[in-house]
Design a protein around this nucleic acid. Structure first.
Lengths: 186, 186
DNA sequence: CTCCCCTGTTCCGTATACGGAACAAGGTAC
DNA sequence: GTACCTTGTTCCGTATACGGAACAGGGGAG
């Protein structure tokens, strides 16, 4: 490996950890102790000599710093242009930004890009699934074919997505939006 | 280690990877090859027998799947209560889930928890900043003091946040919500 | 049937991330 | 001065994550 990965990958993580640690005025020893990792590990990580930490290690450190893992890492990988083809993505590309599980619901947050000129079809999701769309730029027409909703910049709509539904960018403009999909568990 | 970490930590990652892979209709072999990791590694990761992957491995896989690292991981660690210093969080804890930069705007996505019984004050953000709040549970009253907005479960509001504003959970119920803050750059 | 290409799993030697311990250096107390 | 507590670094044996290779099984093609 090591080829696709950025060269200074190691140091970048180290710098972020050290910065976050200093912001909180905790010593290396203290953070290591509280996070349950060896001082050697943390020291090596921070100065970049230990390049490739384990998730468990990173988790412990991030947890103790009160930040999500993502905050410790260089910007998302996104090799080349693989935006994550959603369902049959000619019109829509969706990047899954985050998933989190509440007591009885799974939530997925996507960042959505709808290209004009096509209609994106999405099949029915499990019963009770609700989608929340917040549009930042452009105007979109979304929802079940018999109950399409139009939503412009700054607008927000939601619909139950347990029936087939579509996404369309209208007025020839690209649509950028965030999409939250909430699925009841079981 | 292994004490603070959830027990099924390993399997959770595996399940997510497998689900994302299946959604994309790629085989394990293909993903392993394209991501530049061993099939053994990926296989073990997916079925949970390989519990504690290296960041480099996870990065390669996430990159190839087109998702940020966070999407592969169980909920943010957040040991104890270290919610990422909001403003002066007695009433609100906010976890920064993701930040992304568009051409001229920085977007921050928070997961918000508003505790009832207090009023959370937030100072003015830079001019042009807009906040988008989507409430999942509870009812919140938010916005500038002279233009408070009430929003219940499933509801969504937005307001320009370049003036001081407040967050309150009303009706004695905890509010869980997602908050997007969009700040124009320069 | 054989041959080929694919699937995902398991085996195993090597590389390395891990934490405990020892360490030098800097403060403070007395 | 000594004694003690920090700080962050380095040494080193052990545990383990890694990928290459071998593997069993499933479809087609002919």
């Amino acid at each position: 490996m090591g080829d696709g990965t950025t060269p200074d990958f190691a140091t970048r993580i180290g710098v972020r950890i050290r910065r976050l640690r200093h912001e909180r005025n905790v010593s290396l020893s203290a953070l290591a102790r509280d996070a349950g990792v060896g001082k050697a590990t943390l020291s090596g990580l921070e100065d970049g000599s230990r390049g490739n930490p384990t998730i468990e290690t990173l988790y412990a450190i991030a947890g103790r710093l009160g930040v999500p893992i993502g905050a410790l890492l260089p910007d998302p990988p996104q090799e080349g242009e693989k935006p994550l083809e959603t369902i049959h993505g000619t019109a829509v590309s969706a990047s899954l930004l985050e998933t989190f599980s509440d007591a009885d619901t799974d939530t997925e947050l996507f960042r959505l890009h709808i290209r004009p000129g096509y209609v994106q079809h999405s099949p029915a999701h499990p019963p009770g699934t609700v989608e929340y769309l917040t549009v930042f730029t452009g105007t979109a027409k979304v929802g079940p074919p018999d109950a399409l909703l139009t939503v412009g910049p700054g607008g927000h709509v939601s619909w139950t997505a347990d029936v087939p539904h579509t996404y369309t960018a209208i007025s020839g403009e690209d649509v950028f939006a965030s999409l939250l999909i909430r699925t009841p568990r079981n």
